[in-house]
Structure formats: C-alpha cells, structure tokens
Amino acid sequence: MIDIQEKNGKTVVYLKGEINAQTGLELKNKVLEIFKTKNFAALSFKGVVYMNSSGLREIIDLLKQSRRDKKELALCEMSKDIRDMFAFTGLDKVFKIHDSESAALG
C-alpha cells in the first residue's frame, strides 16, 4: 500500500487507499525507518481516498517523533475532503501541507 521513491535526492512516500489504525502504524514505522538515514520525507496523499481518526492519530504521532529527532515532514496532494479532515481538527495548521509534490519538495 505504500510506495517509496527518490525524487532529486528527496524521499517521497506515496500513500494509497485507506489510512486507518493499521495502515497508519505501518506508514509511521516506514517513515521513521527512512528518517534513520534521511532528514526529510514528503507524504503524497494523492491516492488516499479514506482516512479515519485512528489513522490521523498515527500521523500526528509520526510528526511528534520527527520533530523530536529534528526531521522534516511535508504533506502534499490531498483531495479536498481529506484536507477538510485536517482542517476540521485544526491539524492543517500543525502540518506543512502543500498543494503539489513539487511545492513539498521545494
């Protein structure tokens, strides 16, 4: 469900389908693994159609741990409804959310 690619020396993690407790945890561990060798990762939500609060909690936890380790996490390419979920919980202010992948890779 998770596809990882290198783009111009930066890591992009492509998420697909549904982000729930199980896939969220998987995602968190994968990215923390990446952070053992890298300082930056972008999460592309382009393929994400569903997300629930348990999945969201895992992503918050991922952000918390990356902050602690001084790693940078960028989110991008969210559909309007997924973005609405971030906005509803105020988390659109907590995460760096970019419209496009290129903006996230800056």
Binding site: S53, F88, T89
Partner: peptide, 9 residues
C-alpha cells in the same frame, strides 16, 4: 456528521 465520518466505524 463530520465527527462521525472522522471516527469512521
């Protein structure tokens, strides 16, 4: 409605 869709059970 929004809250229930976020809980999503």
């Amino acid at each position: 409605a929004k809250a229930l869709s976020l809980i999503n059970d």
